Simulated assay, not measured.
Amino acid sequence: MATEESKFWGIHTLNDNLFLKDSIIAIGWSEMGNLTLLEAKREAFKEKYMQVYPNAKKGSIATSAGMLYRFCHEVQIGDYVVFPSKINREVNIGVIEGAYSYDSAQAEYVQTRKVKWLKHLPRTVFSQGALYEIGSAMSFFSVKNYVEEFMGALNKKTNELFSAEAEDDSVGATADDIIESTKDFILKELSRQLKGYDLEEFVADLLGAMGYRTILSPHGGDSGIDITAYKDELPPRILVQVKSQDSDIKEATIQSLKGAMREGDYGLFVTLSNYTKNAHKYLERTPIIRGINGTELVELILKYYDDLSDKYKKMIPLKMVYIPVMKSE
């Protein structure tokens, strides 16, 4: 059975029957050919991947090549694998019994390893945290956080695992992880896709979704004001400055916004990063200027997402889902 030294791996597939009936695990990328023909170095796998998939996105090259390398060279006979099957909503745990093998007879899943399936358990016997970990977006990955739970599942009877009365302590942490991952995704997409004037246009659209009437300043203007916003046809006027820089905003930068304001105006400063300590103090002393950092901007996006224009919904694709949370005390 499993030992504390055993490594646990997680894997996904679109062909559950192949894994369960043939007692194998496998990953695709058939165009990569036999992986044992490559030098056993990550860099060699990356170079080959770029040759085979020249149009691959830069961020996916290291991830995909890394999965192939680990599947071929890091996985050892005697390691354990956790495979959530969709056809029966079970969690299957097995032990790796074979070395890497290239199976050219397969249509897609040519990179294979023999497995002996030890247990097929209903998802309900696992904590939400464990299910979340093996729900990784990656095809092949290392299981780290809930190894003890999966190891325990191998050594216990099913009726010892399931407790309908016990509250799942991992629910709250899992919900927080999902929320934080979503926020990280939004901020990364904003930083990647929206720079300079593009971010200004996005902020104007977000303000519109919040109920403000906005006027974008002409590109190249020297007033330091990127957007003028009104709640209705009457004052006050809100002058907005937007910065897409990665470094934190300094006090002097906010002071330039203050200098462009007239009596009765309010100011809004929006950045994807944050503010320096002195800039925070300046904002506290100047209540007519509101500073929004990257984290706060993401919160507003989540709140008003449904009212954003379709252009930005496509840029930041999100789906409304319900997630379990801890019961109120």
Rank of each mutant, 00 (worst) to 15 (best):
residue 114 K to D: 09
residue 120 H to S: 14
residue 95 V to A: 08
residue 52 V to S: 04
residue 142 S to E: 13
residue 98 G to A: 06
residue 86 K to E: 10
residue 112 T to K: 08
residue 105 A to I: 09
residue 137 A to Q: 13
residue 59 G to F: 00
residue 164 A to M: 13
residue 127 S to M: 05
residue 42 R to F: 08
residue 163 S to M: 09
residue 117 W to K: 01
residue 110 V to G: 09
residue 156 K to D: 10
residue 100 Y to M: 08
residue 141 F to C: 02
residue 68 L to I: 03
residue 113 R to E: 05
residue 159 N to I: 10
residue 68 L to F: 04
residue 62 A to C: 03
residue 99 A to Q: 13
residue 167 E to K: 14
residue 145 N to W: 07
residue 109 Y to V: 06
residue 110 V to F: 07
residue 66 G to W: 01
residue 153 A to Y: 06
residue 156 K to R: 15
residue 42 R to D: 09
residue 153 A to W: 07
residue 59 G to R: 02
residue 60 S to W: 10
residue 56 A to D: 03
residue 40 A to P: 14
residue 154 L to P: 02
residue 82 V to D: 03
residue 76 Q to P: 05
residue 85 S to A: 09
residue 53 Y to H: 06
residue 38 L to A: 01
residue 121 L to W: 00
residue 88 N to P: 03
residue 118 L to F: 01
residue 59 G to I: 02
residue 158 T to W: 13
residue 114 K to Q: 12
residue 90 E to D: 12
residue 99 A to V: 14
residue 88 N to G: 08
residue 120 H to P: 02
residue 65 A to D: 05
residue 140 F to M: 06
residue 42 R to W: 06
residue 158 T to Y: 07
residue 152 G to C: 10
residue 167 E to M: 14
residue 139 S to E: 11
residue 124 T to G: 12
residue 86 K to Q: 09
residue 144 K to E: 14
residue 146 Y to D: 04
residue 61 I to W: 00
residue 112 T to Q: 12
residue 57 K to W: 01
residue 131 L to E: 01
residue 37 L to Y: 09
residue 57 K to A: 06
residue 58 K to P: 05
residue 42 R to V: 09
residue 45 F to R: 04
residue 48 K to A: 13
residue 78 G to F: 00
residue 150 F to T: 00
residue 80 Y to I: 08
residue 142 S to V: 10
residue 155 N to V: 11
residue 163 S to L: 08
residue 87 I to D: 14
residue 118 L to M: 05
residue 93 I to G: 05
residue 156 K to L: 13
residue 162 F to H: 07
residue 69 Y to C: 01
residue 134 I to S: 00
residue 77 I to A: 05
